[in-house]
Amino acid sequence: MTLAVVIPARAGSKGVPGKNLALVGGRPLLDWTVEAALGAGCVDRVLVSTDDPVVREHVTATWPGRVRLPARSPATASDTATTESVLLDVLGTPEAEGVDEIGLVQATSPLLRAEDLDGAYALLHRGFDSVLSVVRQRRFRWELAPEGGRPEYDPAARPRRQQLAGHLVENGAVYLTSRSALVRTGVRISGRIGLFEMPEDSYTEVDEPSDLVIVDALLRRRERPVEPARGAARIQLVLTDVDGVLTDNGMTYSSDGSESKTYSARDGKGFELLRRAGIRTGILSSEDGAQIHARAAKLKVDALRAGTADKLADAKELCAKWSIGLDEVAFIGDDVHDVELLRAVGLAACPADAVPAARAAAAHHCRAVGGHGAFREFADAILAGR
């Protein structure tokens, strides 16, 4: 059996404009569900159905060759189109050829994990025709009756919330069914339906701007294991670009024309941890300005090359100064001017939102975007690999 997971990512969200690429937990919203689907052992194909050229570009750059992008009919991208219409539309594309089972995963449920998909799929094959994910809510529920409020518990013997049996509600994260059932019924779930219970914190779906704040906090609270960077044991020097790595590429201008940028305190801790481990650090930037020098001083970097036109030459100069080879240098960059050095060093990395050329040259792809902890993530990966 071949299982394809479909992730709809329509451009025209009214509740949260641009929500598919809105940052939550340090990376675009869409990335969380795509990564969960790619990490699930049961999933054979991941298909992102979108009418948004920006989303298509992001998917192509982030998961080249791993995620498919079927053409989406305009009729399925309207405000009134159903999700079922999207699924049926996908089934008619070449990308879904040979698919026996369909999984609907919604980008608005970033708390989904790969193990949830695998668990739901295992349940599907225990005699069910369809499976959907649910969350158990333990609340003191009331009903409004003609005579007034009617509780579903005894107020005279009020239980603790944890003692309530609770009720199950859909969390919108996962729906699984067969291709034949979807085509026959036109709905995502049918027949004998299994309920896969997910953790209570996965209840929140991103439908309103306030939901982004909630899931951002929940995602950041999760302990995600650090993946050791390959080749980190030999690294003696870690270099980084500024714009797009230590910042999010944004610029703010005051009334007098002076420029300012925002840096991540989490990245600052990464420099400190590398320094404690005896690893030198340096900043290479084609830009120059007082704020870069101030940030470099705050970070206590061992080298700063601001306004540089040749980062590879600067790296070679630092290697000669400290008697190390380029194979002992790690560098994280995000744009085309970083590619030459990314190809030359022993360990190359890029933020999640790096341009395609930089991603292709980097061996280590961070989950965080520039300015939101990408350098810290790279530093942790280096330290974990030593």
Rank of each mutant, 00 (worst) to 15 (best):
G231L: 11
H365W: 11
V16R: 02
P94S: 14
A9S: 13
S285F: 08
C319Q: 07
K298L: 14
V215T: 12
A368S: 04
R72A: 11
L104I: 12
S78N: 12
L88C: 06
V336Y: 08
S190I: 08
V43P: 11
A363E: 01
V90T: 09
H167Y: 14
G12E: 03
V245A: 00
T82N: 15
L164R: 09
E317W: 00
R305E: 12
A306F: 01
G373M: 02
R386E: 09
D314P: 14
R234K: 12
P351W: 10
A344D: 05
R68W: 07
D129W: 13
D100S: 15
G270C: 15
A309F: 11
I292G: 11
L69K: 01
D334E: 12
Y175P: 13
P94L: 12
K300P: 02
S109R: 07
A120D: 04
E272D: 04
V67F: 01
S49Q: 11
M1W: 01
A40V: 03
D327M: 07
A313H: 11
E152V: 10
T177S: 14
H365D: 02
T240H: 01
A114T: 10
D314R: 08
T240F: 08
Y121K: 07
T60P: 01
D314S: 13
A11T: 09
A320R: 07
L88H: 07
G231K: 02
L47Y: 04
Q137K: 05
A361I: 13
D288Q: 15
D31A: 04
P155H: 01
R10L: 11
G268Y: 07
M251S: 15
V213W: 08
W32V: 04
E101K: 08
V54K: 03
L304W: 05
A348Y: 03
T247D: 08
